[in-house]
């Protein structure tokens, strides 16, 4: 008996993987970035299918802006962003394919042969999830969350400092 949930999880899973493969199959950089975006969006939809509503919507929201910004950086930094010149942009192809397949098979094997124990079939309702996640964030996991916040701040400062042009850095110092 295949439930609707299984169908949705499979559908969005296939969509995610398909778009993920498409990222490296196209030579147009904007297509590549947007394929990654749709891969992540399908992932968000898959979270929704797994009844993690808050995380799904959050994933869909965060990735849109992130991948659009990715697109502009791709166009800035690639030699052939339009992909009209059919430039070769990969190396050590056989090794990479081998590593990818071995990695995927190994993880899938682990997933298949690990005794996962009892599977729970009922998820808590969405409203309760959000409340409990908030309590978790500001309760037991507060320190971890604070650390994440401070890490974001550090990364922002570091990224800006690295990206500033050398001349301007000297003038401001």
């Amino acid at each position: 008996m295949i439930s609707l949930q299984t169908v949705f999880i499979a559908f969005f899973g296939i969509a995610t993987i398909g778009f993920g493969i498409l990222v490296f199959r196209t030579s147009s950089m904007v297509r590549s970035a947007l394929a990654l975006l749709f891969s992540q969006t399908a992932l968000g939809a898959m979270f929704l299918a797994m009844q993690a509503e808050f995380l799904g919507v959050l994933q869909i929201m965060m990735m849109a802006t992130e991948m659009s910004i990715m697109a502009i950086f791709m166009v800035m930094f690639m030699m052939d962003p339009g992909g009209l010149g059919a430039m070769e942009m990969s190396h050590q192809k056989r090794l990479s394919i081998l590593a990818g397949v071995v990695g995927a098979l190994a993880t899938a094997g682990i997933a298949l042969f690990t005794p996962w124990g009892v599977v729970v079939n009922v998820a808590p309702p969405a409203a309760e999830q959000i409340r409990a996640l908030g309590t978790e964030l500001l309760g037991r996991s507060m320190l971890i969350f604070e650390t994440a916040g401070v890490t974001i701040l550090t990364a922002m400062i570091a990224a800006t400092a690295v990206a500033l042009p050398a001349l301007q850095r000297k003038r401001n110092a």
Binding site: L34, F54, V57, M61, S68
Partner: peptide, 25 residues
């Protein structure tokens, strides 16, 4: 009436730039 309605508004509005980026490119 989604439980995450207010967040959903944010999430959907994040796709306006995606549409315009496509229209531009």
């Amino acid at each position: 009436d989604m439980t995450t309605g207010a967040l959903f508004v944010n999430a959907v509005l994040a796709y306006v730039p995606v549409a315009l980026l496509m229209a531009g490119w």
